[in-house]
Amino acid sequence: MNRALTSLNTLLLILLFLSLIFSIFSIPKLDIDEKQSIRVNFYELIQEDDQLFNSSIPDLGMKKETKSFSSNSKEQKAVETAIFSKFKINKTDIKNEISKIKLSMERDDILRVSAIIQERISSVWIKPNSLSESLVAKVLINLAPSGEILDFDLIEPSSNNFFNESILTAMNKMTFFEEVLSLDRKLFEQNFRNFNLVFKSSGEIE
């Protein structure tokens, strides 16, 4: 009876451990783009060999009631190692994956704030109707952590003065990008302290 309980405990521990690993890999599932590697790796693990996943547990002896309680930790380690080896992952991989998740979350934050800034500029930019010309102009923005626009500069003007004027007029209507307040300070410094807005005349119809 005791041996049966011990084996059950071991089984529960292993299942707990497995669920922990799965929960780590499941974090980005909702937010991360399909093309990103983290999700692909996760699926590789479970899809590469479905049978392996189903058959591996009996193979490791988890269902058999032959293990003794005293050899529990040793066996558990052996089981862990076997799982890692069977699933072709190690601790470094997990660390890498976690750091990738973190990067992805940062990337999402950058995308989110960039999209808001893009929308806000678009809402005040009265674009001249310049069908015949493909124009590009670049503005460098210097932002305070509060989101206040400290300075902006038309660093790469287009060849069309009216296009440039329309951009400067739009930029003069903006004073704050308070959306950056939601960002981690380090992320702000790395990405939004100085950034460029690239205005393009065409793009609506191609």
């Binding site: 990337r107 950058i110 995308l111 960039s114 999209a115 800034i117 893009q118 500029i121 678009s122 809402s123 005040v124 930019w125 009265i126 674009k127 670049k138 790395q190 990405n191 939004f192 100085n194 950034f195 460029n196 807005l197 690239v198 205005f199 393009k200 065409s202 793009g203 609506e204």
Partner: peptide, 22 residues
């Protein structure tokens, strides 16, 4: 949105294609 690469020299660039309907 063209995001930064890891290079320390790169800078975030946000493209503005659409103008206001106002």
């Amino acid at each position: 949105v063209m995001l930064i690469s890891n290079s320390i020299f790169s800078i975030l660039e946000i493209e503005i294609l659409k103008g206001s309907d106002n």
